[in-house]
């Protein structure tokens, strides 16, 4: 290339340390290995504290049924948080998507159209979040608290706070395809959770968009200077959460065969806790889909764990809050030590 470089090339190099491939692998995936370790320890605690519950098949069946309800949102939410933003409006968007279904189905009697409307309503709500944050410049924490209330209110206005039964969906392809059982056992929503995890994992780790999510969250100025379209990256992340929230809301409603206009409000803490417990940094720039995936099950096992241990359910909220605060505090401490 040029003389300086060639000269440099001839300079003797310090011998490279040959690491065992396994050691290299362990280093690269330290975060994921840690998450699995934590999950295993918590599981052991549960098994010891309540063996009858945690050694029976039922608990795992229940976890496979209900974890996807919020994990399908937590997985794309991981992208938003890696990009150093936050979305607190996903709970309302779950119900807002179903409101779209409601309106279109009542007018057309076609539940497929209703399903498409649900997804579009969610996508639109996510895009609006992104535009408010990026184009107007409102911090995402504030912007999405605002839209959280806005969509929750809009749902109540449109539905007149009336739930609707969805028994007409029972036995339909939509019902079977989203919440049926594979081989009579494995719930379809768990399959969808895996599909979403694979798609989002691929986006994050194998596409330019994903590379730009990391860069945007790590140092937004550097990313801009090097030509990353930071605005588009952020808007896309918010849009994906909106889309996934509507889908998750639909899955949950179809499974229960009822749409509650307040649906999603209860998913606030567990969804966020899953992302942070999964090792995604609240400061942006680092995080894994695998971590969120595993942490979702840990989070969802806490409630039955507490009940089985003979405590009241009220402790669940205490522990979720505790997990959020502790995992973020650990990240803050780690960050201070490294800088």
């Amino acid at each position: 290339m040029n003389s300086a470089i060639e000269a440099e090339a001839k300079r003797p190099q310090a011998p490279a340390v040959r690491r065992h491939p396994l050691a290299r692998w362990a280093r690269r995936y330290a975060l994921q290995i840690g998450t699995v370790g934590v999950a295993f320890v918590i599981w052991l605690v549960f098994v010891i504290a309540a063996p009858t519950t945690f050694l029976s098949f039922n608990i795992y069946n229940a976890l496979l049924v209900t974890t996807p309800y919020f994990a399908m949102v937590a997985i794309p939410l991981t992208l938003v948080i890696i990009a150093a933003e936050i979305d607190l409006s996903f709970g309302s968007i779950m119900a807002w998507g179903m409101t779209g279904f409601d309106v279109v189905y009542l007018n057309t009697q076609n539940f497929w159209l209703g399903f498409v409307a649900c997804l579009l309503f969610g996508l639109m709500a996510g895009l609006i979040n992104g535009l408010i944050v990026v184009k107007v410049g409102v911090p995402s924490l504030v912007a999405t608290i605002g839209t959280q209330f806005f969509w929750a209110g809009a749902v109540l206005v449109v539905t007149n706070a009336q739930g609707i039964g969805l028994t007409f969906l029972q036995g339909s392809i939509l019902h079977e395809g989203l919440v049926g059982r594979v081989g009579g056992a494995l719930p379809m929503q768990f399959i969808w959770m895996i599909i979403i995890a694979i798609i989002v994992w691929f986006l994050l780790n194998r596409t330019q968009f994903g590379a730009h999510v990391f860069l945007t969250g790590d140092n937004v100025d550097s990313a801009r200077l090097m030509g990353v379209n930071v605005d588009r990256v952020k808007i896309t992340c918010f849009a994906l959460v909106g889309l996934a929230a509507a889908f998750a809301g639909f899955v949950q409603s179809v499974d229960l065969l009822f749409f509650w206009p307040t649906m999603g409000q209860g998913n606030f803490l567990n969804t966020l806790a899953a992302v942070f417990l999964g090792g995604t940094s609240v400061f942006g720039g680092t995080g894994t889909i695998f971590g969120t995936f595993v942490a979702s099950f840990i989070i969802n096992a806490i409630n039955p764990g507490i009940v089985a241990a003979g405590l009241t359910q009220y402790y669940t909220q205490v522990i979720y809050g505790f997990i959020v605060v502790v995992s973020i505090a650990l990240q803050a401490l780690l960050r201070r030590r490294l800088s």
Binding site: Q208, A211, L215
Partner: peptide, 25 residues
């Protein structure tokens, strides 16, 4: 204009990541 928490290769190819012909990194 570096991204501190990212790997060396991500910094070298920042904003100009190499992709194969299907757009995969």
């Amino acid at each position: 204009a570096l991204a501190d928490q990212q790997s060396l290769w991500r910094n070298i190819f920042m904003g100009r990541e190499l992709t194969n012909r299907w757009g995969v990194l």
